[in-house]
Amino acid sequence: METTSTLEKTLRLIALTLVVIFFMFPIFWIFLMSFQTNETILAIPPSIIFTPTLSNYAALITGKLTTAAGTLDIAFMRNLGNSIFLSVTSVALALVLGVPAAYAFARHKFKGSEDIAFTLLSFRFAPPLLVLLPLTQYFQWLGLSDTYFGLIWVYQLICLPLILWIVRGYFEDISADVEYAYRIAGHSWFATFRKIALPLAGPGIAAAGLLAFIFAWNNFVFALVLASADKQPVTVGALAFVTSSGIQYGQIASAIVLSVTPTLALALYAQRYLVEGLSLGAVKG
């Protein structure tokens, strides 16, 4: 086995520490900012010694933003709710539509199957801004603009190709013979799909779902243009912190902490499941 010298270990530790600091510091700083007032945040030089305050969180949760110019109503909690609702339903719908489609594309090569799969992927190629204007017009004609239904539909442009292509790869990695072995033992193809293909591709489906959730959660432009205030997610809602009397850094920071938490929690939870699932699915040939 390979032996590592103390020097090598030390260097490795330093490198890892640098990487962790690089990636974790902004989150850490924002976490600190969320407990500070605008004054301490903007103080020069910045200090990590301050009297923590929960006023930012209180303002977000009560929906009353107190600025120098007076009190503003903000709908942050509603935005957070919208984000959760839109992301969860979009991913759920994309899974319901995308997983069977991915299975079909993985297992059945039919005329034009590659073309259809590629077309679906190509939704990810165009910059969203490019399709936004025509989309807005269509949605207005169809009465879909400013509806949850319309937003979830548009979110499929983000979620569906991701799920389709990632999950398809996982299905292709499962030996078709494992499914044949189950079918020949007296089961229909649908039972095989549910009992063999789905569980074996489980980690892949979870990973794709998680990724799609993050993409949907972070979406900005579609929601900005197609939704009005009461249906906007946090990404758009955060604009409200740019007020006439300045930018509310403290509230922005606490809003970020709150809006990162669900995705972070989901990722941490899924990570455990992913590792477990991947080691279980390791098939020795």
């Binding site: 013979d177 494992v178 044949y180 072995a181 079918r183 007296g186 089961h187 063999i196 569980p199 279980l280």
Partner: peptide, 29 residues
């Protein structure tokens, strides 16, 4: 469909169900 033919098959690539033990794999049939 294979299910209607009542045939059993041993595959060259074995094709055991990864989440099941050997006993469960055999009993599964």
């Amino acid at each position: 469909a294979p299910v209607k033919r009542n045939v059993a098959m041993a595959f060259e690539g074995y094709s055991l169900y990864p989440p099941l033990t050997v006993r469960e794999n055999i009993a599964f049939a």
